[in-house]
Design a protein around this nucleic acid. Sequence first.
DNA 1: GAGTTCCGGAACGCAACAGTTCTGTTAGTC
DNA 2: GACTAACAGAACTGTTGCGTTCCGGAACTC
Lengths: 194, 194
Amino acid sequence: MAEDSGRRPDNTTGRPRDGERTDAILEAAADLLLEVGFDRIRTQDVAERAGAGKGAIYRRWPTKEALLAEAIRKMPPGTAPVSDDPVADLRTVVSDRCRSAEAKPDLVPGLITAMRADEGIEAAVKEGYDLSYVRGTIARILGADHPHLDVLADMTQAVPLLRAAFTPESLDGEAMTEEIVSLIASLAPPPTAG
Amino acid sequence: MAEDSGRRPDNTTGRPRDGERTDAILEAAADLLLEVGFDRIRTQDVAERAGAGKGAIYRRWPTKEALLAEAIRKMPPGTAPVSDDPVADLRTVVSDRCRSAEAKPDLVPGLITAMRADEGIEAAVKEGYDLSYVRGTIARILGADHPHLDVLADMTQAVPLLRAAFTPESLDGEAMTEEIVSLIASLAPPPTAG
DNA sequence: GAGTTCCGGAACGCAACAGTTCTGTTAGTC
DNA sequence: GACTAACAGAACTGTTGCGTTCCGGAACTC
């Protein structure tokens, strides 16, 4: 009857928790993570940006770290385009990384700091850490058996991060992309004649 | 007369400041920087390890950051051996970096965090940041005109750091050294005959 | 309408830690 | 011996920011 249809599935009473609040808080946390880095995020700021109270946060997550871990888990994984020009595809991947290192230099260093401070965040970051899409793109250029696929894939991420951290003045995303892509392309075997 | 010979050059009176205390404090600060990283250093800990009081620290430096900046400036720069086997020399350099990333994974991430938080530390780190010794070693293998010396030099540092941060479980310093060195060695031009 | 839980917002308690001050003592100069 | 400043160590102050609690009000069930 009508009695059952209006009943909540979990038999709870009272005002239901607002899913849009949850989303807004996660989004605000992710934004701040990108903008200021982990070590400068304050829960008060997350709440304000989400248009929420701190109570709404702590009703959902036990600690700031738990909130940030979930926000990290929700971040989209890296992807690579797949066209018939693998060098162009690699250029896209590397260029993305370089621009991100330029524009948001606080994100990755902050994540590293956060990983060392909190196990939940460490797990969340490691769960999302997967460079196989880069490796796959490089493999399409050099062949799946090339002995240096792993170092090269790591290099495409690590070099932009290092430069963004230590030599931000002379950072030039386009030039850096070309440096990295041309190095990898130069390792390609010469085209074999039919 | 005896009056002048006993006088301090700067006309000060009272107990003179103990230079050994200064050294002990700087050394304690540097040690802790290596062990726990910037963001976990407390002045109290520096004082205790140096066998000093906090007063002795703040009599010498206005802030914790100023002390750490000086400790960073006193750190020895990287060097490379120069033998007649440049690949072996490179292996030494890369191996040092890999072992350091393995044993002290908190140092560099901590430095990056600290740079973002304090201008004096940023200046001190950048002042000491010089990879020309790595670049020079690679140039002896590939030739001074090789177009990828800069990326490769950065790679030797950046890849160990990335792996130490994100995949510490599977970190193998010796294997990583070989990966990096063999990649660079594979770029060497074939020996020209007479 | 009664009862419950949510909401934003503000106030609060509490812990960590930078930097200061005090105390008794010591190493120097005059 | 008088004076001054450094010394270690402890106590103290002030700030920052996490997490809690309380408020008046709103959304929902019964």
